[in-house]
Amino acid sequence: MNRRAKDILGKTDFDLFPDQTWASEIRNKDLKAIAEGRLSEYAVNYKDPSGRIRIVNALRTRVQSKNEVYLVAMLWDITEQHNNELELIKARESDRLKTNFLANVSHEIRTPLNAIIGFASIVGDAHDEFERNYYMNIINENSNQLLKLIDDIIDLSSLEVDKFEFKMRSVELKDICRSVYNMFSQKTKPEVSFIFDNNILPSVFLYTDPKRLHQVLSNLIDNAVKFTIKGNIRFGYEIQSEENTDKQFVRIYVEDTGIGIDKNYNHVLFDRFFKADNFTQGFGLGLPIAKKLTEEMGGELKFTSEIGCGSKFWIKIPILSNS
């Protein structure tokens, strides 16, 4: 308790602890131990009179002596031991995550790299211009995929060590969305329609980093394009108000009719290189980067999905001024 014996003797819990709720909780535990004969607790939070939180093992036991009843209470402060164990657990978990990350990233890198090496070795043997162009397109596509993967690794590393710079300013959201749409309008599969209701979207200005917001939306649409074989991808936004307040926010959504995500994977969807199975391409780093960037810019990234019925991701960003 960090108190001298002479300052404690003769006083009650309510005299010693400024937090009367905490004093009442201690009193109730004492009474319970007297009634039941014994009360043991392990690795519980204990707030001393100065307000410090310590981790303790506690034992309360009733002692009968002739006509008198005594309560003996003993507390062992295990804060340092507890913290050391937590650090050890964190270190082991960190090692496990790093190992998984390296295994996954090596797989993601090898896939486009093998395609580049393989088709580069046979492009010179192509018999006509059409065949040569076909091989070159595959090489270029996989080169861009490899370059994006490396950029994502660098971005994620910068985010995790807080060395990512944000340049916030007032921007027109429709301009950013139009730019993203133009970038992906020719990248969807033949049986997929990319819908962007540009003409009905309201004008709204956000105080944000336009480059990073563009990156977030690009990552979301890139995944939609990757996992939507037929149907459509819908992209847009709407202005909404917080319940019982006059605060407004913009809700930017990316909705697709792709393969969907099993609800059992919801809790790991934003993990690095999440893969639903060993036979499909992983989500890469796009989603964890999008989530981290959105949160750094004061927003939220959420999703709903159903296996075989597509997914809907949306970003909720408050409409704020720069003042």
Score class of each variant (00 low, 15 high):
residue 323 S to Y: 13
residue 14 F to G: 08
residue 180 V to G: 00
residue 172 E to C: 10
residue 135 Y to W: 10
residue 264 N to G: 13
residue 139 I to Y: 08
residue 218 S to H: 02
residue 311 S to F: 02
residue 316 K to G: 00
residue 299 G to Y: 05
residue 5 A to V: 05
residue 301 L to R: 00
residue 163 K to L: 13
residue 134 Y to T: 06
residue 154 I to P: 12
residue 72 V to I: 01
residue 78 I to L: 05
residue 26 I to C: 09
residue 8 I to E: 14
residue 109 I to T: 15
residue 307 I to R: 14
residue 199 N to C: 06
residue 195 I to R: 01
residue 42 Y to E: 10
residue 144 N to F: 13
residue 197 D to F: 02
residue 298 G to D: 01
residue 52 R to C: 12
residue 291 K to G: 01
residue 67 N to A: 14
residue 167 K to E: 15
residue 317 I to G: 09
residue 105 V to Y: 03
residue 86 L to Y: 14
residue 176 I to C: 00
residue 276 A to G: 07
residue 300 E to D: 06
residue 197 D to R: 12
residue 158 S to H: 14
residue 242 E to Y: 09
residue 149 L to C: 07
residue 43 A to N: 14
residue 171 V to G: 14
residue 252 I to G: 03
residue 129 E to D: 13
residue 84 N to V: 11
residue 34 I to V: 04
residue 156 L to T: 02
residue 295 E to D: 03
residue 59 L to G: 03
residue 67 N to R: 08
residue 136 M to S: 04
residue 93 E to W: 06
residue 272 R to I: 05
residue 134 Y to S: 07
residue 187 K to R: 15
residue 194 F to A: 07
residue 242 E to C: 04
residue 182 N to C: 10
residue 182 N to P: 03
residue 123 V to K: 05
residue 114 N to S: 11
residue 260 G to T: 11
residue 74 M to Q: 14
residue 153 I to T: 12
residue 246 D to T: 15
residue 14 F to P: 09
residue 77 D to W: 02
residue 284 G to N: 01
residue 47 K to Q: 12
residue 308 G to A: 11
residue 310 G to M: 06
residue 36 E to D: 04
residue 246 D to W: 06
residue 84 N to T: 08
residue 215 Q to M: 11
residue 18 P to L: 09
residue 122 I to W: 15
residue 231 G to V: 04
residue 277 D to T: 02
residue 201 L to Q: 07
residue 57 N to M: 02
residue 108 E to V: 07
residue 111 T to H: 07
residue 162 D to T: 14
residue 299 G to F: 06
residue 183 M to C: 13
residue 256 D to C: 01
residue 225 V to G: 09
residue 194 F to Y: 09
residue 274 F to N: 12
residue 207 Y to D: 12
residue 99 T to E: 14
residue 305 S to T: 04
residue 158 S to M: 15
residue 83 N to W: 10
residue 82 H to A: 06
residue 82 H to E: 03
residue 271 D to P: 02
residue 234 R to H: 07
residue 101 F to V: 06
residue 201 L to P: 01
residue 19 D to H: 02
residue 182 N to H: 00
residue 43 A to P: 00
residue 192 V to S: 01
residue 234 R to W: 10
residue 90 K to L: 10
